[in-house]
Amino acid sequence: MPGLCKTLLVTFILLFLSFPCLCAQECPDNSSNNASDLTKTKCHPVRKEILDSLRSGVKSWSGLDVVFVVQFLKAKGSWAYAHVQPQSKDGKSKYEDVSALLSHEKGGWEILETRPCCGECEDDPDCADDRRYFNKLRKKFPSAPTDIFPSVE
């Protein structure tokens, strides 16, 4: 029996160490000085909530069930900004990018604004130019922390 307990303990430790995202997770909160970069943090619960909200939005707009390739995702307090590339679950079909500002309201993440994609932006300089687009977005939502947005140089 002691050998079995030791084996179980070693197995548990190895499993625990193989899933580092379960050990320490950076959580966006109002006390943090910087936005949490959730772009590559695959198993963060806030990341999942934000992406689930975006997935629900894409489903309601297009009827498509998608998964995302995350290009950019930052959150701070009750604000988040995401740029994702939707695709079919099997990865064979790719769809237009989605960029969105979200806010955590009423117990969940809500999409406040999406950036038009592709040809829809061509004739609008405030949309086509990144710097102008984010300046306009910050003016429209002044309480959104500036460090959740991509830097534009």
Rank of each mutant, 00 (worst) to 15 (best):
K6I: 15
L14W: 09
F16V: 14
L17C: 14
S18L: 12
P20M: 09
L22K: 06
C23G: 03
A24W: 11
A24C: 11
Q25M: 06
Q25P: 00
C27H: 13
P28D: 08
P28Q: 12
N30R: 09
N30K: 09
S32R: 15
N34E: 15
A35F: 04
H44P: 00
V46H: 08
R47M: 12
K48Q: 14
E49V: 04
E49F: 02
L51F: 07
L51M: 11
R55W: 02
G57R: 01
V58H: 04
V58E: 04
S60E: 10
W61R: 00
W61A: 02
S62G: 13
S62F: 04
S62M: 06
G63P: 02
G63M: 06
L64I: 02
L64N: 03
D65E: 14
V66Q: 07
V66L: 02
V67G: 01
F68I: 04
Q71M: 07
Q71T: 10
F72G: 06
F72E: 11
F72T: 05
L73E: 10
K74G: 03
K74Y: 08
K74W: 07
A75E: 09
K76A: 07
K76M: 05
W79E: 08
W79P: 09
A80F: 04
A80H: 07
H83V: 13
Q85M: 12
Q87G: 03
Q87W: 00
S88D: 02
D90I: 00
D90V: 00
G91V: 01
G91Y: 03
Y95R: 01
E96H: 03
D97K: 07
V98G: 00
V98Y: 00
A100L: 11
A100D: 11
L102Q: 11
S103H: 14
H104T: 03
E105H: 11
G107E: 13
G107P: 08
G107S: 08
W109V: 10
W109P: 06
I111P: 02
I111Q: 08
L112N: 05
L112E: 14
E113M: 10
T114Y: 05
P116F: 09
P116R: 08
